[in-house]
Amino acid sequence: MITGYRYAIVEGFRGLKRAKFSTSISIFTIFLSLVIIAVFLIFILNVHWIVAQIQSRMELEAFIDNSYIQPQIDQLLLQIHEIEGVEEVRYISKQEAAEIFREQFGEDAFKILEDNPLPASFQIRLKPEYRSSEPTQNIFSEILKLDGIDEIIYRHDLLMILERYMHIFLVVIIVMGSLLALSSMILVSNTIKLIIYSRRKTIEIMKLVGATRSFIRRPFLIEGIVQGCLGGGLAALLFYLLFKIINIEIPNLIFVDTRIYLLLLILGIVLGFSGSVIALRKFIKY
């Protein structure tokens, strides 16, 4: 068993060395497809990240009836807090509202008025999983039903647009990514087919002297895996360096999940391995 695997590994590497050109093409194909897939992936992750940022900043602002006094307001705050999906409720008193207004529009804006016209309000933040438009809409109407709440403001339209585009993006990118993965798998399997074809004589002799099917396949599968490792590794390296440079030049421009390197490597191996499996089906039938 062990000698069998050692032999397969030796043979696999021997095959890679012998077919340097085809092997390089195969590695390059894997590398290129993974780079494109990774660009898609990083793009979608960043769009997602930006949307999440915007969503997290979108709070509901609920204005409180002017006639309500402190104990009633406390009661109201508790009621809102109990609604499912609400993460945090902050009370903004009339005075605080006036202060915020002053900070934003300057000292003297209120001087012409003798009374403070700004209502007290609650700033309501939702839990992350309730931040898309449908649950937000539900919470919106829940709160509006409460006595003492006059009006609620939030940028529903913006949220809807963001979400709609997110969905379209996601579909487009998944479709394109899958097509790309598929075509690169076919490309890789064709290159490996060439490699196998160039060694059909070896395979013929293997069959004659009693090699099992799995024994014949093993070196080619190892070659596929090695090619995938190299293609995936190169792609991972490229992005690692790229992000490093970008982060030095413009910090925090893009959001990178470090698991992407591992993902690239695994995708590469999957591509190389499945490419070999497809190619081998044609050549070794028994």
Binding site: M1, R18, K201, I205, M206, L208, V209, A211, F215
Partner: peptide
Amino acid sequence: KLLTDRTVFENVAFTLNVTN
């Protein structure tokens, strides 16, 4: 039907390699 890129020894050993 010899393997042209292997030595005489390796060609003969091939049978045994293949059968573990």
